[in-house]
């Protein structure tokens, strides 16, 4: 034992020394560090838990945001649909308005055009009568006096003879409204005569006048759904049919 250096005194010194070291280390190193480790583990666990809570909160917030977004989108769609509908309604109204305006304008334009044509045809009627009289004069000389001639021409154009409408004689027509078509515009006196005659003979309350130069002369009277053709073109046509 002596050669190995083992000695009870030294052994006791070493044991006491270790006891000292052990107590100091346990009190000032291991205990604080074990507490520190525990604290750190707890704080890490706490941090994880907090993070989880935060993650849940974030998930909830995201869900809410999603819901709000969906709602907002639905509302926006609704608004867009309503706006579109309203716009369509408005545009239809505007179009209808425009169409009616256009129709009015067209009617007005047509009426104007018709009036203008009637006025021009009325002017032409005098010239035509003069031309016809001149032509007749050339053909048959002075056989007819001018007054007689003018009466004949008027009768030709207006289909009215001595206060009566020629085509209406001996026809039992009756109707609520009548339409008179002439080749040239009638004078106010002739219109009055025709209106009185038609009213008395057919009982029609309303009488309208139209001008159509293609019938050449005479009158075409439409009462209800019946047509009386007293026009020159109609007579020429029937003459042509009977000749051929």
């Amino acid at each position: 034992m002596e050669a190995l250096g083992l000695n009870l005194g030294y052994l006791l010194v070493q044991i006491l020394n270790f006891a000292l070291v052990f107590i100091v280390l346990r009190a000032f190193v291991f205990k604080p560090i074990m507490d520190l480790l525990d604290k750190r583990r707890k704080s890490i666990a706490q941090g994880l838990q907090d993070a989880q809570v935060a993650a849940e909160a974030r998930a909830n917030a995201e869900k809410d945001a999603q819901e709000i977004l969906t709602k907002a989108q639905a509302e926006a769609n609704q608004n867009i649909r309503e706006a579109t509908e309203r716009a369509e309604v408005v545009s239809k109204e505007i179009m209808a308005q425009a169409e009616s305006d256009a129709a009015k304008a067209r009617e007005a334009a047509l009426a104007d055009a018709g009036l203008e044509r009637d006025r021009m045809l009325a002017d032409v009627r005098g010239q035509v009568a003069a031309l016809a009289m001149a032509a007749t004069h050339k053909l048959i000389g002075d056989a007819l006096d001018e007054k007689r001639q003018r009466a004949l021409i008027d009768e030709f154009f207006s289909g009215v003879k001595s206060g009566e409408v020629v085509v209406l004689e001996d026809t039992g027509l009756s109707g609520a409204s009548a339409e008179i078509i002439s080749a040239l515009p009638l004078t106010e006196e002739e219109k009055e005569i025709v209106r009185q005659d038609i009213t008395s003979k057919t009982g029609s309350q309303t009488v309208t006048f139209r001008v159509d130069p293609s019938i050449l002369g005479g009158l075409v009277v439409k009462v209800g759904d019946k047509v009386l053709d007293g026009s020159v073109s109609g007579q020429l046509e029937s003459l042509q049919q009977s000749l051929s």
Partner: peptide
């Protein structure tokens, strides 16, 4: 042994001071 004890005391002091300062790391 005395030298080793002094070194251990220094280590103890350093760790004790660091832990006492309150930082977790």
């Amino acid at each position: 042994m005395v030298i080793a004890d002094i070194i251990l005391l220094l280590i103890t002091f350093a760790v004790w001071k660091a832990v006492k300062s309150g930082s977790l790391v």
